[in-house]
């Protein structure tokens, strides 16, 4: 039996749909969020239609069942049934979209504040464009001292930061579930791996209240650590964060 080209296209789309659902949702246990899944499926459908219609013959075969359904007088009953199903389906989708929900609205915001050029901390002004970690030089000059500084940074971390950012630095500390936005996951390739050390200094020293006015409210629960830690302790904890995660701070020169 020859499968119609339209049915074949539907089967191919169905295979991709099932793959995403089963592979990510069941096997990896990390389902793809609806917003992204819709985009994926939209372009997969477009891709399938392009492949099935790039030849004149292929396009005709793809459209022929639809054309037949719409134009063949003998298929009036089926046409009415299909029209009915399509209408009800469209109504169902619309209802799903507009029905009242108790769920909190989606947040489109990206929690990724841009740093200012200058900050004030410890009664001093820091130029974030030129600010560097004063201990970084020991990496080459005195590796033993550097190791000790990282160790001390680790102590600072486990005495102060790990409650929220977690003992694996993955943002899953004891109190993490109480926050929205969640504490930063330093293990993620998109956080400290993408940032300069001066950025981390700014975020740690001035905390949530130090975030820029633009795009407020940030809702960050990050304390103002300059009130609790010394400048040196902040630089040490930054060394520890990069050492533990294995990432290298963003820079424009090779280290």
């Amino acid at each position: 039996m020859k499968i119609s080209r339209l049915l074949l296209a539907v089967i191919v789309i169905g295979i991709f749909y099932s793959f995403f659902k089963i592979f990510f949702g069941i096997i990896l246990k990390q389902p793809i969020p609806g917003s992204l899944f819709t985009m994926y499926m939209f372009f997969i459908i477009i891709g399938v239609l392009l492949v099935f219609s790039f030849t004149e013959q292929g396009a005709k075969e793809l459209m022929s069942p639809i054309k037949d359904l719409l134009e063949n007088p003998e298929k009036m009953m089926m046409r009415n049934v299909v029209f009915g199903i399509v209408t009800i389906f469209a109504g169902f989708i619309t209802y799903q979209q507009v029905k009242p929900s108790f769920e909190a609205p989606l947040e489109l915001r990206t929690i990724h504040p841009a740093p200012p050029s200058n900050i004030s901390a410890y009664n001093k002004s820091y130029n974030l464009l030129t600010l560097e970690n004063p201990f970084m030089k020991y990496k080459k000059e005195d590796p033993e001292k550097f190791k000790q500084l990282i160790y001390e940074g680790g102590e600072v971390y486990f005495k102060n930061c790990f409650y929220c950012h977690g003992d694996k630095l993955d943002g899953k500390g004891h109190y993490a579930h109480g926050f929205n936005p969640l504490p930063a996951n330093f293990m993620d390739v998109g956080t400290i791996a993408q940032l300069q050390e001066s950025y981390l200094f700014w975020r740690i020293a001035t905390g949530g209240p130090g975030l820029p006015k633009e795009a407020a409210p940030w809702l960050s629960s990050m304390p103002v650590w300059q009130n609790f830690l010394s400048e040196e302790e902040i630089w040490k904890v930054i060394l520890f964060l990069y050492d533990y995660t294995g990432y290298v701070p963003r820079s424009w020169e090779k280290h």
Partner: peptide, 26 residues
């Protein structure tokens, strides 16, 4: 990199980043 998610999806993934698709965001 950062995904738009409902609260239920956020809970299912355990955070705003997808473990396997997140790295594709950079």
């Amino acid at each position: 990199h950062t995904l738009v998610m409902t609260q239920a999806e956020l809970k299912a993934l355990g955070g705003p980043y997808h473990k396997y698709l997140g790295p594709l965001g950079i």
